[in-house]
Amino acid sequence: MTTAPVTDLRTETTLDVIRGDLLDAYADVRAPLLHLPNYAVTVFGERLDRHGTEPGFVAVLAYADGHPVGYAYGNQIEDGDRYWQRTSPAPAPEYTRRPAVALKEIGVRLGWRGTGTARRIHDALLAERDEPYVTLMVNPLAGDGKVHHLYRSWGYEDIGHSQPSPASPALTVMIRTTH
């Protein structure tokens, strides 16, 4: 089976417009993990709804043949945000002095992995941002460490650890400049 090329990247700041497509893509991307409480589609939907109301929310979806094949979303965080409060050790003041972009979720359907789609989505999400830094959390075991390595190849560096909820795995907090 040949994977159709990504023909459209859509950037949206209103969750209602893309919520269904985002949930559809998430369910497929995370299918092997959906049995775990923190990865259930309903739990993701609750997080997404909360994040969609936070300052600076933006999502980018990639489409092939009119179907969503990848996504990323994030929002702005400031010093004192619970994102930073859960990071250990506390991040250096240079990272929290000004608002940063928190990349909350990124995923690409299996047939589009390894095609540069994730990087295109990532870069589109950051293209219009004014914040000096972007941060994300990654499960260092995801893909046998390949996901963590991929983010390092994109310029991210480890700055700490976090466990956002009791059901969440221990995550590595990473950061890089936005441009």
Rank of each mutant, 00 (worst) to 15 (best):
V60G: 02
Y71D: 00
L48C: 04
I121W: 01
A102I: 08
A92S: 15
Y95T: 06
N38A: 13
R119D: 11
K104M: 13
T96C: 09
T42C: 11
G111N: 09
H67I: 11
R109S: 02
P99Y: 08
A118I: 02
R113N: 08
R19F: 11
H51Y: 10
V43G: 10
I121P: 00
H35Q: 11
S88H: 11
P89T: 10
A90V: 15
E54F: 05
R47W: 14
V17L: 10
R97C: 04
R120W: 09
A27K: 08
L110K: 12
R98G: 07
N75P: 04
L61H: 04
S88F: 00
Y73Q: 08
I77P: 03
D21W: 03
Y83E: 05
T115Q: 10
A31C: 01
P32F: 01
H35S: 14
R120I: 06
E78K: 06
P89L: 07
L125F: 00
T42N: 14
G66F: 12
E105W: 02
R19L: 11
E54N: 05
H35I: 04
T42P: 02
A64G: 11
W112Y: 10
D79Q: 12
L33H: 12
A31N: 03
E78P: 01
T117V: 15
L36T: 13
G116Y: 04
H35V: 11
G74K: 02
V108C: 03
R119M: 07
Q76N: 12
T14K: 12
Y71N: 01
H51A: 09
G80V: 15
V58Q: 12
A62D: 01
G114R: 04
E94Q: 12
R98P: 04
V58W: 01
D16N: 13
R50F: 14
V43C: 09
A62P: 05
P93V: 15
L125S: 04
Y95K: 03
Y95V: 07
T14I: 12
H122S: 01
D65S: 13
V108I: 06
G20S: 14
I106G: 02
P68R: 04
A124M: 01
I121D: 07
